[in-house]
Every structure is written in structure tokens, then in C-alpha cells.
Amino acid sequence: MQGFRVASPMEQFEIIPIVDLSLGSIDISLTNSAVWMLIGTGAIIAFFFAATRRAAIIPGRLQSTAEVLYEFVSDLVRDTVGPEGRKFFPYVFTLFVWILVANLFGMIPSLPGLPKAAHTFTTTSHLVVTLALAMVTITIVIVYGFYKNGLGFFKLFAPSGQPFYMYFLLVPIEVVSFLSRPLSLAIRLFANMFAGHIILKLFAGFVVSLIGAGGFLAVVGILPFIGAAAVTALEFLVAFLQAYVFAILTCIYLNDAVHAADH
């Protein structure tokens, strides 16, 4: 069985330091996670650098792709937040593209035989990453909400047009709902990436185990293989969908910040 050692589905999430670095007493080692953040971000920068090198009236292939992305997110922000959302567009765009690339690059298969530190790593499968992004969104919502509406921002917790006794019920619900936003935002993305990759590795593990068992079971191994292929296709959809959901929820929360006083 030595040749068929099945990797634990958890091993893919391990953070492995590559270069030890520290900032004062804080550990900022270059890890496999950091490497994949750099690869993803570097790829995005390279793509947009190439796409905008010659901004032409008649766009080339790269520029067309960049423009499709631009219009997609631009429409998303305009439809959800309205014209005032324009100032948040760079943030939402960066968020969408960064998460999309992190999710998609996590789907690249690792080359067999490489040391673990060189395996593909999905940076968005870590709670701290998604939580940090969610906190940035919520911080923008709160800071801009108070800056724009002053104390009128609190109207967000008291939807108008209700009988007064309803507010005893509504306000706590709205407060809890508001406070749970960053958590739900963070956990939705993290859990989707985490669960998807676990299922993928479980199916792959079944294939290896069944082939290792030999005989008739090796033939049955085709079933989890088909399953793994299907889940891979599904994961590509999830990778896009979760980036989109994160971006659109950010827009919806920003809309609250912009229009809190209108409630």
C-alpha cells in the first residue's frame, strides 16, 4: 500500500512556511498560502498590464476580456448601489477579481511527486482570509455609513412604517442581522471552498483506495472517478459563483450604507 498512500483531505489546507520572516515579534513568514496569493495577484496584474498597455478604440482580445469584466462589475455596482456606488467600484472590482482568481487558481491540479509546499493552495479556503475581506467590507459600510448619514445610519436598524411596538422586536433582529453579516460573508466563501476541496479529495482518495484494493474493486473505482470529475466541474461554477456572491453582497451592504437615512 506504500505506493498508494492516500493523502488526508485536510493536508491540502496545511500552511507550510517556505521562508521564515518576521516583523518585530510578528511572524510574517512566506508560506505556501502567501506564494499563491502572490501568484494569483501577479497573474491579475500581468493580465491587466497587458490588457491596458495600449488602450485602443478597437480593443484586442485581452482588452475585450478586461472590458467585459469591467462592465460586468460596473453594472453590478450601478444596479445595486446606484450612481453613488461609483466610488466603491475599484474596491468591488478588486474584491471580485482577487477572489475569483484565488478560487480558480486553487483548481489547478498539483503536479504529483512535488514536495507538499509546492502543491496548489486555495488561499480563500482559509477563514482568516475571507474574514479579513469581510471585515474590510463591513468597516467601509460602517465608516461610510456614519460619514454619509451621521446618526441617521441607525435608521438602518429601524425600518420605517411599522407600529411602534414592533420596534421592540424589529430592532434587535436588525442589529443581530447586521452583526452577523461579516461572519456570514466570511464563512460562506471559506466553507464553500473548504467543503468543495474536501469532497474533491475524498472522491480522489476513494479512487486510489479502490484501485489499491485491486480485483473487482479496482473496476468499481470508476464510480468515484466520475464523481470527482463531476465535482471538479461543479467547483469551477462554485469558484465563480462565490466570487460573484461576495461582490454582490458587498454591494448590497454598501447600498445600506449609502441609503441608510432613506429607510
Binding site: 498560502s33 496569493m37 495577484t41 496584474i45 474596491y91 477579481v97 482577487w98 482559509h126 479579513a132
Partner: peptide, 21 residues
């Protein structure tokens, strides 16, 4: 592992935002 991840996230995401905007 959180401080390291946060540091590199800030660096890459912040840098990307700066270039995008």
C-alpha cells in the same frame, strides 16, 4: 498562521487595489 496570512493578504490585495484604482 493568521498573522502571516493577514500580512500577505494586505500586501497583495492592497497592492492590487492600488494598481486597479
Amino acid at each position: 498562521t493568521w498573522p502571516s496570512q493577514l500580512f500577505w493578504l494586505t500586501l497583495t490585495f492592497g497592492g492590487l487595489y492600488w494598481l486597479m484604482a
